[in-house]
Design a protein around this nucleic acid. Structure first.
Lengths: 340, 340
DNA sequence: TTGTAGGCGTTATCAC
DNA sequence: GTGATAACGCCTACAA
């Protein structure tokens, strides 16, 4: 089956290819009503669908957006299993489609960068999640397309950034524990990378502790990976080695789930024996038992804003000088924290 | 910044564009060792990256695979929030990348089909999840590219299919409940669509009931949507209207989570008061409290197989006449089912 | 072994 | 208004 091309349409409609192109690209003014109708008929008759490759070749627009999310060290798989990423990717795809863009989703092995892909595919823009080596960002800049960083504290004005005030959130969470009478508060967290969100959340934790004149101890910091498994381990260690701890701040909900399970395995109940607060408010958090008290952020809004910001940049609409958009945060009280 | 083209490389290397093309496309034999080296140097020096659009234009290969997953009725968003889809998409992306393909991920509004996208982008193939109207598949066939259907019982030899024996799985789950002494067994399920997986799982439920001479009653069928929310509702209704029910088969883990929550809200505990078994064994199931007894399927394997099957079809490698690949299933006993 | 040139499907620049 | 025609970047006969 041969592809229907613009020439076929031209032949059937009895006009030139130029006319077709005008008619189909919002330049109807350059075409008389009569020919316009003939064209529309022919297009419908032949079911003509333009070839984006050809189009992209001439006007350097691909209507393709790259979205990258980090991947697991072990399996080279995108960590889409982390519900946070699933939710935001859903929102991004939906919003992108509304604007007639398509999305190429990839994980990225930190070895090879994203430069090749961007060039090969002539990406119109990219949305990047996760924290990478500096070289990754330098490469990215060379591609010279608009790029949105989600949840990054990279200090580089080339990139537009969208995120939340993680430090404030970390404070909010810890303070909630304190207000409920807790004084021995642990933090369980993924790797604290420079310029990453967990670093900020960790700082917020320290802020709140200091405010309340509570001492901060490294023994109460369980740093490893943002994963359920790490949560389980930390939960067990807290249960067996730190009976004095009554409150735990997990820097991600998925970690909080792990903590609660680990605690349970050791016979400690949440929130009766120990309180746990999470961060993100992923969909699963309200489904969990007990429903998780957590710091709520609007994940979908984050994705939608990222898309709109990106598309504005692509179309060079007045680059509103907001280099960084910060979305609101709130405390979501459910049932994993108890007053003592 | 102007793009580096094959001509630039040719100029720098002091050879023709043809030589470059040969050297870069596995036809090194047509090029002498000397020029090959000069070419490699020039490529490295200029950091030349071929343009896929141009390439696609001439050889009708895009190295782009379309992946579509169903979307919510309300928000036109992909239901990537369903962890089942997240997991399988992760696996697909990873495997695809290994083979140098990229993935365009979309939801699909059932109004407009997938035909346009496939044509516009010259997709090399597609992987489709979910159940759609017949017209959707008819359109798809016209595109004339290899297509893999995951978890579909559509009876059309055009498509390669990959899935599990859902009927057997439904039987396995129900039988497990029966073997544990349950006789009043409800089923909570998403919409039972023709050719869909839940229909088969439902059939398996009936099989097991019949085998054990247990009566089947429509009152015990809670059909609505494959969602947490529906599970909650069903759980509540079971708790308040059907005290005689002691076992529940949920046709998806996410539904099982809802049921357990709904039951809890009404003061019923799982598994002490009532047993619940799920289906799929998503990652979350072992994290849930109580850890969910469920029918295990290898979600990642499903994604990987789909990719390999698709790529084989694309490369026209002996279309191994397996029109349908069926992956194994097993019972995963955890703690949501109790012997009575 | 190497280089020239035509064509893939579009868009855009011209003349008419 | 309309229609040739030259790009866009690449591949591949074909000729040298």
């Amino acid at each position: 089956m041969k592809r229907i091309t613009i020439k076929d349409v031209a032949r059937v409609a009895g006009v030139s290819t130029a006319a077709i192109s005008y008619a189909l690209n919002g330049k109807e003014s350059k075409v008389s009503t009569g020919t316009l109708m003939k064209i529309q008929e022919a297009v419908a008759l032949l079911n003509y669908i333009p070839d984006f490759s050809a189009r992209s070749l001439v006007n350097k627009k691909s209507y393709l957006i790259g979205v990258v999310i980090p991947e697991t060290e072990e399996h080279n798989q995108m960590i889409l299993e982390n519900p946070f990423y699933s939710e935001i990717v859903s929102a991004i795809e939906s919003e992108l489609r509304k604007h007639n863009y398509h999305l190429i989703l990839t994980g990225t092995d930190k070895g090879k960068g994203y430069f090749d892909l961007s060039m090969q595919r002539n990406l119109d823009g990219a949305i990047i999640m996760g924290i990478y080596h500096e070289s990754f960002y330098e490469e990215l800049k060379k591609v010279n397309i608009p790029i949105i960083l989600i949840d990054s504290y990279i200090n580089d004005t080339y990139f537009k950034k969208i995120g939340i005030d993680d430090r404030c959130g970390g404070g909010l969470a810890t303070r909630h524990l304190i207000e409920n009478g807790h004084t021995q508060i642990a933090i369980v967290t993924g790797e604290i990378k420079r310029n990453g969100v967990v670093e900020e959340r960790f700082l917020g934790y320290q802020d709140a502790l200091a405010e309340a004149n509570l001492s901060y101890s490294l023994e109460y910091v369980f740093e490893e990976s943002t994963s359920y498994e790490h949560g389980v381990l930390a939960g067990k260690r807290i249960a067996s080695n730190h009976p004095e701890i009554t409150g735990v701040f997990a820097t991600a909900d998925i970690v909080a789930f792990g903590i609660i399970s680990g605690l349970n395995e050791c016979g400690k109940r949440v929130p009766d024996d120990i309180s746990v607060i999470g961060f993100d408010d992923i969909t699963m958090s309200r489904m969990f038992i007990p429903p998780l008290t957590t710091i709520h952020q609007d994940i979908k809004a984050k994705g939608i804003q990222a898309v709109n910001c990106l598309i504005q940049a692509i179309q060079c609409i007045a680059s509103n000088d907001h280099e960084k958009i910060t979305l609101p945060l709130s405390l979501m009280e459910r049932q994993s924290v108890k007053k003592i």
